[in-house]
Design a protein around this nucleic acid. Structure first.
Lengths: 246, 246
DNA sequence: GGCCTTGTTTAACCTATGTGAATTCCAGCC
DNA sequence: GGCTGGAATTCACATAGGTTAAACAAGGCC
């Protein structure tokens, strides 16, 4: 039956889509990429995908669900450093076998595909554009960290929250996960948002309510709607440049 | 006279030292790297090395002096995202012609060497280890951003300041810029420290004084001394892992 | 239907850090 | 030897956001 019911669907498609957005890829490269992604493995919510940056010679791509990267602080609290949405690479340590030990954990039920590192090396050798695309992923990921750093260092709570909502809106729309009416699933708790934005749960809540009162955002049952995306972006001076390839 | 007075000194040496620390390089690779670095160009304090991420096909390496990378916030204030010390690459945008527009500006009189991108491509092709070393630089740089992000999101003022001092101590010692007695030049103003750590100048000052009273750090005339590095590291749970290659 | 559990919301109070404005310090300079 | 300008320091006061705890809502489960 393999391939009969979904002759054109493969787990690697979502990653392929992401890479193709960042770099024009030849048909050969496209085929190689999509075939390189393994059968997905499923994860429960709060299950670790990567622990302390320890790897096993594979690139992991989130195929569905929601995850985050984080580091622990000495007092036991957790600083979330990035949210990971479908189509994105979970951890870029493979690029340099670096030792910056972050962990990656799911926030919802998720599925993850893996690409064997040796196999990827072969693909990259044959199709250098794939390496370019991956480096662009890494650069965007770095750009997003920097933007979060800027939020933490220089923006107040209202701007932090709205900037993050704008970012998620943009990223999820890239992956085709924003609905017609502008709403999208954001399966985070307010506590988790706080762990990323350096805010207490209570204050995240206060801030979300301000956005509601301003008519700029609603967030109920894990669904966010931005009725006035322009106004939202204006509020926090959001500019998606850092999420795009030039 | 060229080469006579300093037969073994070349502007590229400091970069070579850095790359060699991160990756064992063959003699051929070493020679290629050191010869690839152009004659240094000098910069005055507060002069831009890179503006808005705009490039001109060259990698820039800080050879001497002190610089920082930053982004402006909408209110005109500046968030410093990284300090750059001698031997480090000013901007990694060349790796992916990314569009995350940061600027790099000197903090002191500095000299900068450039490596032509085409030439670097040739070197990398012949000596892939050089690429590995550069990717490790990039990973460490990313690790440092993440650590700053963690500081801003989760550490109080005292921990932020001491963590940064520990980091500078470590990085400068890697470049051989820490003296026997443990002191090192830190040519920043307290205002600039605040722009990196998300603190007001006044509060940076208060915090430095606490460190002085604790006997953990002195900072006078742009010279920092950490009389008790262990104690300092313990105070802020500093772990240099993120600054090293595994 | 009652009862956990997890997440959101509200309220009262507290504190780390910001702000604005002097003041002091010091290095260069005329 | 006084003047100037940037940096460090001090002081008085303001506030954004943290903390603790309690109330509330809703989904799963026996």
């Amino acid at each position: 039956m393999r391939g009969v019911l979904h002759p054109n669907l493969s787990p690697g498609d979502i990653w392929l889509r992401r890479l193709s957005d960042l770099m024009d890829l030849s048909d050969g490269a496209r085929a190689a990429v999509r075939e390189a992604v393994s059968a997905p493995r499923n994860y429960q919510p709060r299950e670790h995908i990567v622990r302390d940056g320890l790897e096993d010679n594979a690139v992991r791509v989130l195929l569905s669900g929601f995850a985050c990267r984080y580091k622990y602080l000495p007092d036991g609290s957790r600083q979330i450093t990035a949210f990971i949405v479908p189509g994105e690479i979970c951890d870029f340590a493979f690029l340099s076998d670096s030792s910056a030990s972050q962990s990656v954990v799911t926030l919802t039920q998720s599925s993850v595909g893996t690409v064997d590192l040796d196999r990827l090396a072969g693909i990259v050798e044959q199709f250098p554009d794939v390496m370019t695309a991956i480096l662009r992923c890494a650069a965007i990921e770095h750009g997003a960290s920097i933007e979060l750093l800027v939020s933490l260092g220089g923006r107040n709570a209202l701007h932090r929250v709205s900037h993050l909502l704008c970012e998620m809106h943009f990223r999820l729309s890239q992956s085709g996960l924003v609905r017609e009416d502008g709403s999208f699933d954001l399966p985070l708790t307010q506590a988790e948002l706080g762990e990323a934005l350096g805010l207490s749960t209570v204050h995240v809540n206060r801030t979300v309510q301000v956005l509601r009162r301003l008519g700029l955002a609603t967030w109920r049952d894990k669904v966010v709607t931005l009725p006035d995306p322009q106004g939202m972006q204006a509020l926090c001076s959001f500019d998606a440049g850092y999420l795009q390839s030039r």
